Simulated assay, not measured.
Amino acid sequence: MIRPRSLRHDPKGWLIALFGVGAPLVFVIAAAGSGIGLWGWQAGLAALPWTVLVAVITLVLAIVFIALNRRKGQKTHWPMLGLGLLATLGFLAFLVPYGTAMVTLPAIHDITTDLADPPQFATLTLRADNWDNIPGADDRGMRGMNPRQRWATVHQGAYPDIRSVRIDQPVAVVIEKAERLAEDRGWDIVSVDPSAGSLEATSTSSLFRFKDDIVIRARAAENGAASVIDVRSVSRVGVHDLGANAKRVRRFLSDLSGTTTTASQ
């Protein structure tokens, strides 16, 4: 059997291409399979460390192959090796922000602008294990605190900028604008009451189809001429949200308030 010339002369390149493209492909399949219910989200995430390991090994091998070729004065056959190298680098670059969030942000999944009085869900249901696995149980500085107190302490330390805002518009107007913004984001709105100043919705991620529940609360200020807005975003599953809920709250409040906002202490 005669093999293609590129395969005969570049087995190393084919190896790098196979694993370089294969690792991100397996990750996408694992995530998409979880998203459509072929297997649980835990199984989908379990594939991640293995695909990262394969990608790192692939990157190391590619560098070694290139270095050996140069040392021996041999020509590097770039088409397949380059493909695998680019796929590997792209995959690892895609994962860098998530890895950084994993090690720099606390393992919490419930983010709100009001730690003392978080907005409460009326239509949606707060997950039953919401206060389980809150970090700090073994921290000497938080000794004696219950899970909710530890959550508030950790939350404040990680996200001091997330707090209530005041908008110079009546409650009903603010909630109507919030509804339009939620629709623009593709959130599934489950309840909205402009007169009561409340909106509840669910955001679904693209690959794993993770669902995060959001509640927006608007309270009248200055005899109804302004509103104090609070937002709460909670992941339905998992312990660490990798900063996704905080990012969502920040962006939503920024879009909702525009230039008419002042921070509310």
Rank of each mutant, 00 (worst) to 15 (best):
G186D: 03
Y98S: 12
I108E: 08
I175A: 00
V234D: 03
V54W: 01
A244G: 03
D212T: 04
V239P: 01
A93S: 06
I66M: 06
R143H: 14
G90I: 00
R217L: 10
N146S: 12
L92N: 06
G197W: 08
A46D: 12
A244I: 04
R140T: 15
E183F: 08
S34E: 10
L181D: 07
D129Q: 04
P170V: 08
A221Q: 12
I175D: 03
R163K: 12
P118Q: 05
F208T: 11
V190I: 09
V21F: 05
G144W: 15
D132I: 02
S235Q: 02
G186L: 03
V165R: 10
S164K: 13
V173T: 09
P118C: 08
G99R: 05
I66L: 13
W39Q: 07
R71T: 03
I134G: 00
M142S: 13
L25I: 08
S235N: 00
K211H: 05
L89W: 03
S203Q: 03
P49V: 15
V54E: 06
R166P: 01
V215S: 01
G224R: 03
A244V: 13
R209V: 07
L124I: 07
D161Y: 11
W41D: 15
L181C: 07
L7F: 09
G33H: 14
L85A: 04
S235Y: 01
F19E: 06
V154L: 05
A122I: 10
S6L: 11
D138F: 12
L53E: 14
R3M: 15
A107V: 01
V103Q: 11
R209Q: 06
F208Q: 07
F252R: 06
L86H: 07
V171Q: 08
L181K: 06
T76N: 11
Q265G: 09
N146A: 11
W14N: 06
A30S: 11
A152M: 09
A93C: 13
R209K: 14
A201S: 03
D230M: 06
Q42T: 14
D114C: 11
V52C: 12
V52G: 08
V54R: 09
L25W: 04
D139F: 12
R180C: 06
G33E: 11
A225G: 06
K247Y: 09
R248Q: 01
R8A: 14
A47M: 12
V21A: 15
I229R: 05
D117L: 10
L181S: 01
R148F: 00
A226T: 08
L61Y: 14
R5Q: 10
I29L: 14
P24N: 07
T123N: 08
A122Y: 09
N245M: 00
A263T: 12
F94E: 12
A152R: 12
F91R: 05
G90T: 02
T113R: 05
A225C: 02
A172R: 09
R148L: 05
I57M: 13
G99H: 09
I2R: 14
W50L: 15
A116I: 03
A201R: 00
R185E: 08
K72Q: 10
P160M: 01
L38S: 08
L53P: 02
R3F: 15
S227C: 14
A17R: 01
R3L: 15
D188F: 07
